[in-house]
Design a protein around this nucleic acid. Structure first.
Lengths: 189, 189
DNA sequence: CACCCCCGAGAACGAGCGTTCTCATTTCTG
DNA sequence: CAGAAATGAGAACGCTCGTTCTCGGGGGTG
């Protein structure tokens, strides 16, 4: 595989920056062309339509997310630590430039009702995150409801940080997660 | 005040149904005209532009939300019960027809980066909800962090219910809220 | 060197949409 | 009943945008 990104990847990353940063319908194909630095012709040679490009952009973003979460969990020894690492990861993301909430939530809100594709990709990415949390919680011996609650905290932190401009939501969510985990495993000293 | 809605209100409600249900840019003024059953001319007599209409639609939706939350809290005797009533309210909403997540989150994701107005209205409605929760928590003698956590649970439940199609998120959030409140007020029997 | 194929830049096209205009009809008013 | 003002329905306008087309030049091949 190539170390430097192929042109197709460059296009996807450029489109992702724009779609995430400004919304999807607010970004024209011409802006994508400019950001990617390719002629329109090559853009349409790689992707037959804006919808197809968007689809790949969302899949790329889903990839980024799961890699980021896995990366954050790498040094965590126990399932509990891996779970809490999610919120640390969120805290860094919330404070990064251009943070604007969850891209799937945004795409779903904008196009979920009008594009079955977008709705399906968003649904799948949330389901995948819940499986990740669910597996770790199960490994810990926790209940599915606890898993659902930890996922809800992560989701809520994202919208709170984005719209409320409160990145501390990550730390608040983390503390809440610790309390919920602690409540399910009392006196585990 | 009039019991039956004025024409202006009918327009706002029609636009709200469409904007919430399909997204904002996906809905043309002609669709609003049809849904409201008024001539285009009257529509533009009431609102100078689509932006102005959207602004009023969002304010109307903020009104609905705070009334709904207050209504749900009406019969709750204690601040704690009023807080938990939020999640019961969410549970009913999640199971209602056409539920598609928080309209402010959706509007923010679609237009927040491109319209300062939309971003401001969304920010204000989240801030207002957090004040509501914060006041009740303070009344209970709880900490601001607890308030933030309860709000995060409510936010997360909304996106989980919408995109994940899991209305049980309301009950999971409620149980989590009970645990968090219980942790801050131990042995309060 | 001549020919041909390919590619980049941007014009062009067609559709959709926000907004305004036209005009026939209706509804008040004196 | 006559005239004026307002209204409704929809056409029209101008702009944006997704997508395609044109054309001029550059590089590779016989």
């Amino acid at each position: 595989m190539s170390q430097q990104p192929t042109e197709r990847e460059r296009i996807v990353e450029a489109a992702d920056r724009l779609f995430y940063g400004r919304g999807i319908q607010s970004v024209g194909m011409d802006a994508v062309r400019e950001e990617a630095g390719v002629p329109l012709k090559r853009l349409y040679a790689e992707f037959p339509s804006k919808d197809a490009l968007l689809s790949e952009v969302l899949n790329h973003r889903a990839q980024l997310w799961s890699v980021g979460i896995a990366e954050a969990a790498r040094e965590a020894p126990t399932p509990r630590d891996k779970l809490l690492a999610i919120y640390d990861f969120l805290g860094e993301w919330f404070r990064s430039d251009g943070f604007r909430g969850c891209g799937f939530v945004n795409a779903f809100g904008e196009l979920g009702a009008v594009s079955a594709d977008v709705a399906a990709v968003a649904h799948e990415q949330k389901a995948s995150f819940q499986r990740y949390v669910g597996d770790l919680v199960a490994e810990m011996g926790g209940s599915p409801v606890l898993a659902s609650q930890l996922a809800i905290l992560a989701e809520g932190a994202q919208t709170t940080a984005a719209i409320g401009r409160r990145p501390e939501a990550a730390e608040h969510a983390r503390e809440a997660a610790e309390v919920l985990i602690g409540a399910e495993f009392p006196v585990e000293s």
